[in-house]
Design a protein around this nucleic acid. Sequence first.
DNA 1: CGTACCTTTGATGAAGTTCAACGATGGTGG
DNA 2: CCACCATCGTTGAACTTCATCAAAGGTACG
Lengths: 250, 250
Amino acid sequence: MSSTAAARTAIPTVDAEYRPTSSKGRSSATFAAFGSSPGGETQPAGESQGRAAGTALAGQVLSFAEGREIYAEGDTVRSFYKVMHGVVRTCRFTSDGRRQIDGFHAEGEIFGLETGGEHRLSAEAVTDCCVVAYRWSGLDAFDGGEGATALTVFGFAMTCLKRSQAHALLLGRRSAAQKLASFLLDWAGRGTGECVDLAMTRQDIADYLGLTIETVSRTMSQFERDKLIALPSSRHVVLRNRAALQDLVD
Amino acid sequence: MSSTAAARTAIPTVDAEYRPTSSKGRSSATFAAFGSSPGGETQPAGESQGRAAGTALAGQVLSFAEGREIYAEGDTVRSFYKVMHGVVRTCRFTSDGRRQIDGFHAEGEIFGLETGGEHRLSAEAVTDCCVVAYRWSGLDAFDGGEGATALTVFGFAMTCLKRSQAHALLLGRRSAAQKLASFLLDWAGRGTGECVDLAMTRQDIADYLGLTIETVSRTMSQFERDKLIALPSSRHVVLRNRAALQDLVD
DNA sequence: CGTACCTTTGATGAAGTTCAACGATGGTGG
DNA sequence: CCACCATCGTTGAACTTCATCAAAGGTACG
């Protein structure tokens, strides 16, 4: 982004192989505390994540200059990352050129934790920074019989995370029409065909999308006038022009 | 919420002990697919989560009538849940009485997956519904030596999820001043003392908070006029009245 | 048939965006 | 060293969108 930064470091630099204390003893202790009482983890995020250093996780240290891309939207997910120092942002770009930042990540924080093949966000260095990349392929974390349940629960967490991130991106600087279109398409996706049965009230929808009940109602009526949807009853929506709704969202 | 619903079922009903096929064979297969390529999970969320039924997870089936509370904000986290049928919402209430809905959860979806002792959200039945509660205390998922790394990575995911949910709640229907106050307090928390060194540009902040660069700048100036902060330089913020900023947020 | 809640619609106002211009800062090159 | 340039940040004025206030249909249920 800045020519200054480019002059300092052109390409991510591999600084070192990062393999901290791989003592099983400490790992077990960590495990026990976490596993027996998942509710017991009350320390701040930074410290919690800092515990990674106490496990068998090994990673590669990389440096990035300010403004450099760490990975791009659409890249294959090979690693997740921890910030050693500096600040990283994860973001997405909308078709109208706007940028939505999912989060800033400071020292000790994890980012890029995604499943599903491709990164749905890109990551960039806000300042010159140093990160550790932990490769998924090197992880034998979920091997062994007992790992199956852990894996399942981990999958749940990742799905919840994906949904939450999508929701946050939806709420940031999008019009009422975009929010509602996105909401309808989402629920159309859960059901079958073009009919959407809304289980919730307008108030629920409003509170979910960060709008008022009046705006939801007005926007819904506008969609109907524009022949994007039909409204046989207030809770029953028929998508008449899914493509147009999709265009609103992208 | 509706007296109708209350008449049908007053109190969550324990329907059954839910223990599906606990065949290790199928569990292992699930594990292998997931563990060897975390990026390989491309099926829709519903199906992915549906696989829970193939693991050793056991849970208790509960029924709730429309409008009933499944758990409240502040309750001790003892379980996480899967929707069998119906729709559930997870939400928070702000001090001014507004409600922010974190998400709707339909059949097959997981909710209430939290760590940290207390639920930060409450969960309510949008429709009459049926959920399975999986108790953390019964989980031996993270036992065994190999589980330590899994546990660590799981902890990362939960921390990311917590942050993402907080971000989504911040973006829904809050004023520019509230968003910015929350942002500054967050960064003040990461550093020490009352001085916040912002690593990012106004544009970055705007894209994170769902505002424009002009609004961020104007709000920052207003804070300075109101003696909430001092601005020795544009990237250097000194919190002069942390309590007042905190009041804005709550 | 009446009550309560949900939904829709209209009128008005405030908050934030957009467009535009100007000031500050830092790095570059003469 | 200073002038120049690019980027970042601030401020002002007009405009848009959405929230707020108010009131009137609809629907379900007792």
